[in-house]
Design a protein around this nucleic acid. Structure first.
Lengths: 137, 137
DNA sequence: TTTGGTGCAAAACCTTTGCATTAGG
DNA sequence: CCTAATGCAAAGGTTTTGCACCAAA
């Protein structure tokens, strides 16, 4: 992961909306889009604007509180930063996600980057397929 | 790569626009966005609509003539397919792309999917970092 | 009180789609 | 001919931004 020297979390006020967003992201296993987060919170009766959701997700990502990922449709997805780095095995049909650890890939990626003289390396790996349940259907 | 049984390249007509798009993508080293491609072609005096660019890029991708990739801004980027499946090492600063082959990753991804019972597997791997030139700056 | 945060609506983006027209086979 | 391909404009989607108001410190 990239180092983030200039932490921007200095003058952040704690508001109900920010807490609500952070909590939802924390309690969720899956990656959520901003739209989904807004929809869920509204469904719970929370009062929060879509732009506020976007702005909070951005600041949370800036502060390295949450991880971001882009799905195949170009939507940005958000999730709490996990303690361990891992990757995702995603079902193309039902969207089910399996987490997979892959120390081998980490090493491979770092080495490949190093061989080309790259530093400050990060990587994304996503595996797509058809899960057992969806094959049966 | 997922198997593509039903090749859709059957009834494709060869038009000036399709050739132009394919040629530009072929002759270019870098990944280009649809908007960039349209802009470049218009700049050259070509007569072509933006939607035609999009549609041709889609069919070319469907026919496995070009590779697609999404940049960090969510734009879809296109580039001519290499003969071998490979991944990309992208400089976060200047956008320079190195191709890297990684049979190990292919095997790892396929095995990880298999262990979870997934079939029809494809995967994406992107490595981001700072290239030597940009480190110097 | 001061100023960052919020909410709404409008704008900005990339991308897709409807439809009449053109042109490849 | 026939129908895929084109071009334009309009619509679709996500994300950003302007601005007046609100509330944390």
């Amino acid at each position: 992961m990239a180092a983030s020297p200039g932490s921007t979390s200095e003058g952040r006020r704690s508001t109900r909306q920010r807490s609500t967003v952070r909590e939802l992201v924390s309690e969720s296993e899956a990656f959520l889009s901003a739209q989904e987060i807004h929809h869920i919170l509204r469904g719970r009766g929370e009062t929060i604007g879509l732009s506020t959701v976007y702005r909070n997700l951005q600041t949370l990502a800036d502060d390295d509180v949450i991880d971001t990922l882009r799905n195949e449709d170009g939507e940005v997805l958000y999730r709490q930063c996990g303690p361990l780095h891992h990757h995702h095995l995603v079902c193309r049909s039902c969207g089910k996600v399996e987490e997979i650890k892959g120390p081998a890939v980490e090493r491979w990626a770092d080495r490949a980057a190093e061989e080309h003289g790259f530093t400050d390396v990060s990587h994304t790996v996503e595996i797509f397929g058809l899960c057992p349940a969806c094959q049966a259907r």
